[in-house]
């Protein structure tokens, strides 16, 4: 009994310490957000982001292997850290849900996502390489989430999008950024034909753009059916001239080389969730359930 109480007091003390540490960390994030201009996303473009990711993967692996009981390892792998970070994510999302869309270059979200990534990586290392019940499920869910987060977070500096109006008269390469900056694309596009079909109530049922790529290749674009220009670059049909015979359409070019990392993560997570549904409660909760059903404390 005495031992149990001492253990509980010690856990509470550790929890309080972790709250203080994360409090300081997010205090700095808040100061940066208030005092500094936006987070310099472009500085972390490839290869800086790839090098940093590699360094983090190796660094945390070594830390976990060589110093499994160091304060940093314990802080990063602690269940209290999970709860603190998830609570902060929930509160941040609630605040933003009521106000506006967050900027990808906000310091607050950079600090939050960085902390979540480090924590998730440490939890993954701690759980994936030891015998445990539902190990595959753990790997799929946590590994999938890790990859999805990694692709979005580390891939953000390499992500770009441009829009270009494509007409029927001549091929064009001129695209525009969201701030109306001009950029010359390595490929040319020309509109060959544009078909719109309507429902009886006047709502468009389908619109198709037939385009000529680089004066040689015929491609067709429609909503939900992008065209892969090169690994990482996709073309999307986003708008068209709203007249009976459209003479131009608007094409969006999205460059997202980390999309493969992100989609792999998402598919793993989907598989993990199917397993979560099929296999039921995580082991710890199943044990508590048995205790409750036997009439004990949950």
């Amino acid at each position: 009994m005495q031992k149990k109480l001492t253990g509980r007091t010690s856990t509470m003390r550790t929890d309080k310490l972790y709250i203080k540490i994360w409090g300081v960390y997010f205090g700095v994030a808040l100061l940066f957000q208030l005092l500094l201009p936006d987070f310099p996303t472009s500085f972390f473009a490839f290869p800086v982001n790839a090098a940093l990711v590699l360094l983090t993967l190796v660094g945390l692996w070594l830390l976990r292997k060589e110093k499994p009981f160091s304060p940093v390892t314990r802080l990063l792998a602690s269940p209290s850290t999970t709860l603190i970070l998830m609570s902060l994510l929930a509160v941040s999302c609630l605040c933003l849900g009521l106000t506006s869309r967050p900027s990808p270059s906000s310091w607050w979200f950079f600090f939050l996502l960085a902390a979540l990534f480090l924590h998730l990586l440490m939890v993954f290392y701690a759980g994936a390489f030891r015998r445990r019940p539902h190990r595959l499920r753990f790997i799929l869910i946590h590994g999938g989430l890790l990859l999805a987060l990694l692709g979005g977070f580390a891939g953000a500096p390499d992500t770009a999008e441009w829009r270009l109006p494509v007409g029927k008269e001549r091929p064009t390469r001129q695209a525009y950024t969201s701030q109306y900056g001009k950029i010359r694309l390595p490929h040319s596009l020309q509109l060959k034909d544009f078909n719109v079909t309507y429902y009886a109530n006047g709502m468009p049922q389908e619109f198709l753009a037939h385009l000529l790529l680089d004066n040689t290749k015929n491609i067709t674009l429609s909503v939900n059916h992008p065209y892969t220009l090169s690994p990482g670059d996709d073309l999307y049909l986003v708008d068209y001239e709203h007249v009976a015979e459209p003479r131009f359409c608007v094409i969006q070019v999205v460059r997202q080389p980390w999309k493969y990392v992100q989609s792999t993560g998402i598919w793993l997570l989907l598989a993990g969730c199917v397993m979560l549904f099929a296999q039921g409660l995580p082991t710890g909760m199943a044990r508590k359930e048995k205790r409750t059903e036997k009439g004990g404390q949950p």
Partner: peptide, 14 residues
């Protein structure tokens, strides 16, 4: 996130 917090609270028994 809120439901994840619930699940992790139950797992950690806190």
């Amino acid at each position: 996130s809120l439901y994840l917090i619930y699940l992790h609270l139950r797992l950690s028994g806190k």
